[in-house]
Computed example of a mutant assay.
Amino acid sequence: MCGAELSALPEGVQRVARVLREQGHPHSPVMLDDAARTAQQAADALGIAVGQIAKSIIFRRKSDDAAVLVIASGDRRVDEKKVDALVGKTGRADAEFVKAKTGYSIGGVSPVAHAQPPVTLIDRELFRFDEIWAAAGHPHGVFKLHPSDLERLTGAPVADVVQPPA
């Protein structure tokens, strides 16, 4: 991606693209025609299984008001008790908190390039897939990666953080 292409992208996508490029990630963000605010919308737009969407869920840690980012497989529900056991008691994060801590609006939270580094956990269920897609800082922006790339890009541990499939 050249500089001119990058400047035409929304600011959040530009931040993600810069970090991906700096980290030597082989895939640049792409912009979808339609918004992909949910894992299902993103999967439908990309023609992939919903589990291949690496959704970014933000919680608010009660002890220090830190953002806790859980990157979970799109077909799984995050188990807050499992998250709390790993990082301390958390609560829901409202849109204002998410924007202030990450620099992104809900529906476009990327796993990388946050305004303030979050406490991050990666759902082990993502490793069922060879290829996954994550939000790139905007509801229309996504980028392709392998689950192991999340570990490299975020430095976060892989953990059991989701409810068992129904």
Rank of each mutant, 00 (worst) to 15 (best):
V83G: 11
L86T: 08
P157V: 06
G88C: 05
S148E: 10
V158A: 01
H140Y: 07
K82S: 14
W133E: 05
L145P: 01
D149I: 07
L20A: 09
R76V: 00
T154S: 04
P118F: 01
E80K: 13
I132H: 05
V16E: 11
A136Y: 04
A35K: 14
K89S: 14
R76W: 01
L69K: 03
D44V: 04
K99S: 06
A42C: 11
P117D: 13
A43T: 06
S110C: 11
M1I: 12
A49E: 15
L153N: 00
P118C: 03
A35I: 10
A67N: 04
G51N: 13
D123V: 08
Q163S: 11
S56W: 01
A8C: 11
S7F: 13
V30S: 10
G107D: 04
F97Q: 01
K101T: 10
P139A: 08
D33Q: 07
V158G: 06
S110F: 04
R21N: 03
A8F: 08
P111M: 04
R152C: 02
A100W: 06
A66D: 09
P164Q: 10
D84A: 15
C2T: 13
A136E: 06
D65T: 03
Q52T: 13
P117R: 13
G91V: 08
S28F: 13
A4L: 13
L145E: 00
G108F: 00
V83E: 01
R18G: 06
Y104T: 00
C2L: 11
S28L: 14
K82R: 15
V112G: 07
L46S: 04
A85K: 14
S63V: 06
G51T: 11
F129Y: 15
Q52E: 15
V112I: 14
E80P: 00
H140E: 14
Q23A: 15
G108Q: 06
P29R: 11
D149Y: 00
A95V: 05
T102Y: 01
V162D: 08
D75M: 02
L20W: 05
I48S: 07
A35G: 03
G91E: 12
A166E: 15
Q40V: 08
D84G: 09
L145G: 02
T102E: 00
Q40T: 06
P164S: 08
G3Q: 15
R128W: 12
I71F: 08
P165E: 01
Q40F: 12
V13I: 12
F97T: 06
G47V: 12
I106H: 01
A8D: 14
L153I: 04
A100T: 07
R152K: 11
P10H: 10
K89D: 11
Q23T: 06
L20I: 10
P26H: 07
A113R: 02
L6C: 08
D130Q: 15
L9P: 00
V109G: 07
E96I: 11
Y104P: 00
A115R: 09
V98M: 02
D65C: 05
V162N: 06
L153F: 00
R128S: 12
V162A: 14
I48L: 02
D44I: 02
V161D: 05
A42V: 02
D34S: 15
D44A: 09
G141T: 09
I53F: 05
S73E: 06
G137C: 13
R124G: 10
F97S: 03
V87W: 00
R21D: 11
A159D: 08
E5Q: 15
A54V: 10
